[in-house]
């Protein structure tokens, strides 16, 4: 509401202020949107940092008491959740990259006149709500379904269970199902930036590599891969960042032993009484953790201009 009342004021100043250096037009255009982001994004995030060191309850209200023990509770009590969130999202990112690269490469260089159609096929599934599509995996991976039968008849299920990926004779309600769902959900986010950067590469560079007696693999390693690095970095970031926060797959396809940070935060905020300070502390830990990982990755990859 404040944005609506405050926005028109600078507009009136626009005409007389035209001649002097200081031009108010950009600020008039920026103000409403930036105010919205400040009030509903920045302020809540900052206030949750304050909330994370508060104590109290819903009846008497919460007070800022610099109760750092909330962080102890938020980290010590939920070790497995942090571990799951990190491992699942890293695994998802790696598997997504491994699957997306060949697909993006194929569409970009071998797609020919089918390029547009194939890229459309990458996006088309997301027209259906992602929740319905994730729940469809319950049908695909069901105990009496083809996937489980095939894996069981090949005795692969015993191996995956021994490794702790699956549980008993089921694929559903296991870490493997969670990662499968996450890979499925985030794969388009890896393919799209990869395709964009691969598509820009001149295919004649491949011919040049072959002319200079490079094997196909060397050509890929020395020419294509370095040129597609922006896509690799963009794709992995677009996958990793939402994957860390995702708890839908863990909730729908996992079991009580696959819980991730997001599930606990939701639980603390929406169902636990007075869980709000510890929930805020968990959010802060998660946000800072993600930021540190992403920044280190960008810094190591040497593409600060990505931001």
């Amino acid at each position: 509401m404040t944005t609506l009342t405050e926005a028109p004021a600078p507009v009136e100043e626009r005409a007389p202020d035209r001649k002097p250096r200081r031009n108010w037009t950009p600020w008039a255009l920026l103000l409403p949107g930036l105010l919205w982001l400040t009030v509903f994004f920045l302020v809540p995030i900052l206030s949750s940092v304050s909330a994370s060191v508060q104590t109290g309850d819903y009846d008497d209200g919460f007070k800022l008491t610099w109760h750092w023990a909330n962080y102890h509770d938020a980290i010590a009590d939920f070790g497995p959740q942090y571990y799951h969130s990190l491992v699942y999202s890293l695994l998802t990112t790696i598997v997504c990259l491994a699957l997306a690269y060949p697909v993006a490469y194929f569409i970009a260089f071998k797609g020919g006149r089918w390029k547009t159609l194939l890229m459309a096929l990458v996006i088309v599934p997301s027209f259906t709500s992602f929740l319905i599509r994730t729940i469809a995996w319950k049908t695909i991976l069901a105990d009496n379904g083809t996937v489980v039968h095939t894996l069981a008849s090949m005795h692969l299920l015993k191996i995956t269970t021994a490794l702790g990926w699956t549980v008993g004779n089921h694929v559903l309600a296991s870490p493997a199902a969670v990662v499968c769902g996450m890979v499925y959900n985030f794969l388009p986010f890896t393919i799209l930036p990869l395709y964009t950067s691969l598509e820009k590469i001149d295919p004649r560079l491949h011919e040049a590599g072959a002319d200079l007696y490079c094997s196909a693999f060397t050509t890929w390693r020395r020419i294509t891969l370095p040129l597609s690095m922006p896509g690799v970095i963009g794709g992995t970031l677009l996958t990793f960042i939402p994957a860390v926060g995702d708890y839908i797959n863990a909730q729908l396809l996992g079991n009580p032993n696959t819980t991730v940070v997001g599930q606990r935060i939701e639980d603390l905020f929406l169902r636990q009484t007075n869980g709000y300070p510890v929930g805020s502390a968990m959010s802060v830990v998660m946000m800072v953790g993600t930021l540190v990982i992403v920044m280190t990755y960008i810094w190591r990859a040497g593409t600060e201009d990505l931001l």
Binding site: L37, T38, F41, P242, G245, L270, S280, S283, L291
Partner: peptide, 20 residues
């Protein structure tokens, strides 16, 4: 400020807005 909402985990944005 424009980049952060795309990069922040959704749970964090949701939880902090809920608190607000």
């Amino acid at each position: 400020l424009l980049f952060l909402p795309m990069a922040a985990p959704e749970v964090v944005m949701g939880a902090t807005l809920a608190a607000l």
